[in-house]
């Protein structure tokens, strides 16, 4: 895998490898450039992550004294204890509330809108609605944060989790509608017609036909929006102020401000806030990766 690059630009003259791989045609030729670049990128990705993880188990004294890429000889959990003692459980709960409270309604109402656009897309009103959402894709919505702040104040929602949830839903709608309507469009029209003939309402076809058939897309938008909102920083920063309303990214930032010299503890907080997502990734990697790629490169 670490073949010198100079040997690499072989193209058609590369020796086909022996035996079973020859059958696989194009893929049979060893692609040394590709392989080397692939491993190189792995290093680029993994070295910082490896450093973050091992450092988070070092003591502060140890951190300054040892080789930064050597794992700690006596790993300590003290950093994690310090992070947990700083109310991280509360921030975690806040983040969960915001994500669930925003993603579930966002996906549901986007799905309903996508269904209406696909099924009744000839109407002028629905066409206008559809292009409004498309325009929303091209606009950096974060640029509208000042009026959002004003609206939240006027609604007396400032410094509450609802203040983060409402704009999060709105910002999630354009892309969700887009991805979902692409998938609903793929459901054969005859299925809808025959279900209607059997006496089902539009509402019935929405739930019992379109919903199950577009599950991969629903998973995609749920994951995509969920990740974005879980990691969101700007809305909590601007729309809340009390410590007990912090979500994890904001908590990370203020923890870092407080303990900046204690690098291992700061890194422990980074690991700890990423851990729940990492667990989801381990459990649902296939769904996540295939969902994202299906949703975006359709």
């Amino acid at each position: 895998m670490t073949a010198p690059v100079t040997r690499a630009p072989a193209g058609p003259t590369t020796q086909p490898r022996s035996g079973p791989s020859r059958r696989r045609g194009r893929l049979a030729r060893a692609n040394w450039i590709g392989g080397a670049a692939g491993w190189l990128w792995l290093l680029v990705v993994m070295i910082p992550i490896y450093w973050i993880v091992i450092t988070s188990f070092k003591t502060q004294a140890n951190y300054f004294a040892t080789n930064p890429l050597k794992p700690p000889t006596a790993p300590t959990l003290a950093n994690y204890r310090l992070v947990l003692d700083n109310d991280f459980v509360r921030y975690f709960v806040n983040s969960v509330i915001v994500v669930v409270g925003a993603v579930v309604p966002a996906v549901l109402i986007s799905f309903m809108a996508a269904f209406a656009i696909v099924r009744g897309g000839q109407g002028r009103l629905l066409k206008a609605i559809s292009s409004m959402f498309l325009m929303g894709l091209a606009i950096p919505l974060q640029a509208t944060i000042i009026p959002v702040y004003l609206i939240i104040i006027k609604l007396h929602l400032y410094d509450s989790l609802v203040a983060i949830i409402l704009p999060s839903i709105a910002f999630a709608i354009p892309l969700s509608v887009l991805v979902l309507s692409n998938f609903i469009r793929d459901v054969p029209g005859e299925l809808f017609e025959s279900m209607r003939l059997d006496g089902a309402s539009e509402w019935g076809t929405l739930w019992y036909l379109a919903f199950p058939l577009t599950r991969p897309a629903l998973v995609t938008v749920t994951i995509y929006n969920g990740l974005g909102i879980w990691n969101g920083f700007l809305l909590p920063l601007i729309l809340t102020q009390s410590p007990d309303k912090r979500t994890l990214p904001l908590a990370l930032w203020s923890f870092q401000g407080q303990y900046s010299v204690n690098v291992p503890a700061v890194l422990a907080s980074v690991v700890l806030t990423t851990l729940p997502i990492l667990l989801l990734y381990v459990v649902g990697r296939r769904q996540l990766v295939s969902g994202l790629s299906a949703g975006f490169s359709k």
């Binding site: 309903m112 209406a116 409004m132 959402f133 640029a143 910002f171 354009p174 509402w203």
Partner: peptide
């Protein structure tokens, strides 16, 4: 059926967009 999405998006997307201009 598109109504809820339209309401939320107008309220926290389009209105702020006009609002920022104002």
């Amino acid at each position: 059926m598109a109504l809820p999405a339209v309401l939320v998006f107008v309220g926290f997307g389009i209105v702020p967009l006009l609002g920022v201009l104002a």
